[in-house]
Nucleic acid binder design. Structure first.
Lengths: 363, 363
DNA sequence: TGGCAGGGTCGAATCGATTCGATCCACACG
DNA sequence: CGTGTGGATCGAATCGATTCGACCCTGCCA
């Protein structure tokens, strides 16, 4: 009787497995495994023979699924996008962080699995992928607060998690920036230029994502951590905005809408602090549209430090955050978590960049 | 002696497995499996008991790795980004297609794994993820020609593949649009407006990604399929461009550079056909910068039909392609391939949208 | 009352690799 | 010449589920 492994080998049709290759090379499965992984002593001639057999059979290397089960690791990092994908992807801030993350994870042989969170407030469930996809670590971008069902699901599944720009939570890694002091700096810059009537354009306050002026009651309510911190930064600089406009997302058009609303009234502010560059660039465009000169008639400041080629020669005054490094920092936390480290958190510095969109307050 | 499965259950510390749950619920592993998958007859009471035991033990559902190995399916679709991620992500064209794809795949319980192709012309190797990540199907966006090592690797691994905007190849699925006739239409539109001096701003010709004017020799050489088709569209309309400018990527700033170069010379064209909207918007910005009126002094047309909020009230004349549907079409091809269908290809229609950036040729 | 149908459960094989411990052999050293 | 050493190889257990076929028992029908 033939040895058992010849069975599948002779049947053909099926994709070859390591056992088939081993049989063809006349070695044991364990030796064949060693020939591919290189983890253990193996004679050069044997390795060669195994590789030849593999080539002969059209064997393209060990099946990742078998390897993953055995190792107990999938090599996959789930990235939960806490916003509609189409929106998140239109924002260079998200994509640059993602780019930095992918760049760091790639060399570690870790893949990035996109997990769109159906952040639909009505829908009760959680994304099926979040619920059941294989991943060794999860990264939550733009993740909600401590009550977010996302985080609860991940905790239940026992998946180590890193939060980007969320709040600090026990047992969860976090990467953020010092946005509060960043906003404080840019606000002080405007105060020093003599501005007193300063308005503010905010990121969404919460998952309702309303658009329009907001007052005390809303500001006192539940507000996403990132938005809150950037609001607090203005207070730190001793400024109470003359108006606060909420946008439903960080996009140019929402900034433009905000700009039209804020700048067309009678008591228009002399400066606008925006919580993102995309929003700020929209405000600049709206100002130009209204025939206002920037910065002579109105100063505009942003946050992020991304490229805005459509502003032409103007350079936005903004708070620059290291986006790619942020992604890399997330990657490093992920690496450490996989190595068994305790969840850590890391805060990156920001710097004020004074451009051409802010100037002395008009007299 | 206790039945074998109590072993791990009593040792604790380890994560519980289906066997632990089965033991705790007093049923066999197979029954416990049925209780979770619902594939097979099972008494409601039994299911209930199993789920209770699972809750008790903190078992969060079947381990995906075990399931995947058994099923021989990973539930993962690898998306190979044929360009630097940071660049691809800055282009709404890619991200909208990706959005449509993810939206279609999600409900099918398929996840999207991002695979950055290190398209470095010098680097000899292929991305390790491409080489060894688990995936049931691969989608190649912006994939190169038939000689691309990407495709060769996928073929060798036996992974069914769908190509987006590539060329038709045997054994490989493909989704594209009728861009050749789209460009023809928009070119004819300009001809009808009386333009004779028409310039062209192209996408990269090949992986060299040069920037600047190009002449006959380069145009006759090896050119990426998509760029070639869009060049041919102009010829179909009977137009030979007075100048052709190659850009290294579809980004606003490269369009602006092209615009400055094309529009500042003495014999400037009266119209510019751009192979993407991002490029076209850059040309419009450059024209404004140079004090030229659009469309009175120069007409500008694009391709894609994406939103360009920074153009203000201007609406770009362009060829609109259904980006989200394109992603969905890819998703459907993927679904069909997984169901065992032969690789198919699908071409989506485009439509000319006449906006405010094209007008009669100046006399 | 006997037989048959079928719902419910179970045991065991299986997916494809990795890895631990044992074995074997050649060579060097005492 | 016996023995120790270590490189190379092998066998078998293992990762955690799914699924096929067998089995049991109940209830219905003849």
């Amino acid at each position: 009787m033939l040895p058992p492994w010849t069975r599948r080998y002779e049947l053909s049709t099926q994709r070859p497995t390591l056992a088939d290759v081993a049989a063809a090379a006349g070695v044991s499965v364990s030796t064949a495994s060693l020939a591919f992984s290189g983890a253990g002593p193996i004679a050069a001639a044997t390795r060669e023979r195994v590789h030849e057999a593999a080539a002969q059979l059209g064997y393209a290397g060990p099946n990742p699924l078998g390897r993953q089960l055995r190792r107990g690791r999938s090599g996959i990092v789930g990235v939960v996008i806490g916003d509609a994908l189409r929106r998140a992807f239109r924002d260079p801030v998200s994509t640059q962080v993602l780019d930095g993350l992918v760049g760091t994870l790639g060399p570690l042989d870790l893949g990035v699995l996109l997990i769109p969170s159906l952040s639909d407030p009505d829908s009760p469930g959680v994304d099926p992928l979040l619920e059941s996809a294989a991943m060794d670590v999860a990264v939550v971008m733009w993740g909600g607060g401590d009550d977010d069902p996302l985080l609860e699901t991940l905790r239940r599944r026992g998946i180590p998690t890193v939060l980007v720009e969320g709040q600090l939570l026990p047992g969860i890694g976090a990467v953020g920036i010092d946005d509060r002091s960043g906003i404080e700096q840019v606000t002080r810059h405007l105060v020093e230029l003599g501005h007193t009537r300063i308005a503010c354009v905010t990121l969404p306050l919460n998952r309702d994502r309303g658009e329009g002026f907001i007052g005390e009651p809303e500001l006192a309510g539940r507000v996403w951590a990132i938005t809150r911190r950037r609001l607090d930064g203005m207070a730190d600089a001793g400024v109470t905005p003359v108006a606060v406009w909420q946008t439903p997302a960080s996009l140019v058009e929402h900034g433009a809408t905000a700009g039209r609303a804020l700048l067309s009234g009678p008591d228009r502010p002399t400066a606008v602090v925006c919580q993102s560059d995309l929003l700020a660039s929209g405000v600049v465009l709206a100002a130009r549209e209204l025939g206002l000169r920037v910065p002579q008639d109105v100063s505009v400041a942003g946050f992020d430090g991304i490229e805005l080629p459509w502003l032409g020669t103007d350079v936005l005054t903004t708070v620059v955050q290291p986006l790619t490094e942020k992604g890399a920092a997330v990657g490093h936390l992920v690496r450490d978590l996989l190595a068994g480290a305790e969840p850590d958190h890391r805060e990156l510095p920001v710097t004020l960049r004074v451009g051409t969109t802010t100037g002395p307050a008009p007299s």
